[in-house]
């Protein structure tokens, strides 16, 4: 099943069945995620917040995944790098900033978790924790409930390549496959788990190969190629919706920055590898495609970037003006009715 990453030209829009508005919308989300992420990184590095984790380099596959879902019924169980996916599913920049600054109104958890622990019941985006990989089992459970009620909802869940070493990865794929559940497992494979490179994490050549152990399709895709990623994920979503069971997608992405603001990657990351990663940055690549397809002009691009910068400023100001949770909230939402 697994094919290798290819650096073929980006698929033409007609190939994936998306119109101009959607193609540009995805670009805007990538821009916004990048700008918002960089602002949050800066806030942490300047001591205004305490922590940031970035999705820079992962945006293409994330936006593709959000685009492939049916936002009126599908579920998403993300991990911490999925900022672009969250924005494309309908989470606002203000929501993200409130959470980043741990404000009382922070919608993902009222300032209880580190930033990037998304949650939005109204969008069927499930709250996640910090222990990696636990969410894959929740995805299987959510999908089990959908299937039991005869609904057509699909559940998409994500994790990193290091996270695939956890036992919950095996337990989730096995359960989902035994019950032919409508789940799409997307591994955002950036080759690193903090400082540990992929070859110390697994002996298989590709994560997609592991799908064979669960009798499900495993697909490798260049996760920095937005339209290729969209095609692959859409196919998996359609299969799931048609009752044909789960798919494992190995989306090969790049990590453009250190693991988090607490990490110093110079201690372990070779300069050439970082340079290679930067050469695969999904943003300029998708922009070049849109320009080549005459879907985007330089003027449009400038205008979009200005608009996005304003959204980021507005979100930052909005969050800065709001207050921290009151200490009296320490024990609320512990049990029902309390």
């Amino acid at each position: 099943m697994a094919d290798t990453v290819q650096t073929r030209p980006l698929a033409a829009p007609t190939e994936v069945g998306l119109g101009r508005e959607e193609l540009l919308g995805m670009y805007r989300t990538m821009l916004l995620a990048r700008a918002l992420g960089q602002r949050m990184w800066l806030l942490a590095r300047t001591g205004k917040t305490h922590f940031a984790v970035s999705g820079d380099g992962h945006e293409a596959v994330q936006v593709a995944a959000a685009q492939a879902l049916d936002r009126t019924q599908d579920w998403c169980i993300p991990f911490y790098r999925d900022l672009a996916m969250m924005l494309h599913l309908g989470i606002t920049a203000r929501d993200v900033m409130l959470d980043d600054m741990a404000r009382a109104e922070a919608p993902f958890g009222r300032g209880r978790q580190l930033p990037a622990h998304w949650s939005a019941r109204r969008l069927r985006i499930v709250s996640g924790s910090s222990p990696v990989t636990t969410q894959l089992l929740h995805a299987a459970g959510v999908a089990l409930a959908s299937k039991l009620r005869g609904e057509t909802a699909v559940t998409l869940t994500t994790c990193g390549d290091g996270a695939t070493s956890e036992g919950d990865f095996h337990e989730a794929l096995n359960f989902a496959s035994v019950h032919r559940l409508p789940v799409v497992f997307v591994v955002e494979n950036n080759g690193w788990a903090i400082s540990v490179p992929r070859h110390k994490q697994m002996a298989v050549a590709s994560i997609a190969e592991r799908a064979a152990g669960y009798a499900m399709p495993g697909v490798t895709v260049d996760g920095t190629d937005l339209l290729e990623s969209y095609k692959v994920i859409k196919e998996a979503v359609d299969r799931a919706r048609a009752g044909e069971g789960p798919t494992l997608i190995d989306a090969q992405v790049v990590r453009l920055v250190p693991h988090s603001t607490n990490d110093d990657e110079r201690r372990y990351r070779p300069a050439e590898e970082l340079a290679d990663a930067k050469a695969r940055d999904p943003l300029p690549r998708y922009r070049a495609h849109l320009v080549a397809q005459r879907l985007l002009t330089e003027a449009d691009d400038t205008e979009l970037k200005q608009e996005v910068a304003q959204v980021v400023d507005d979100a930052t100001d909005f969050a800065e003006r709001s207050s921290y949770p009151d200490p009296s909230e320490i024990a609320t939402h512990l049990y029902a009715g309390r």
């Binding site: 579920w75 169980i77 499930v126 636990t134 894959l136 089992l137 929740h138 995805a139 299987a140 459970g141 959510v142 999908a143 089990l144 409930a145 959908s146 919950d168 337990e171 989730a172 359960f175």
Partner: peptide, 9 residues
Amino acid sequence: GVAIGASLN
């Protein structure tokens, strides 16, 4: 883990 997911839905 699966029971948790099912309870969420």
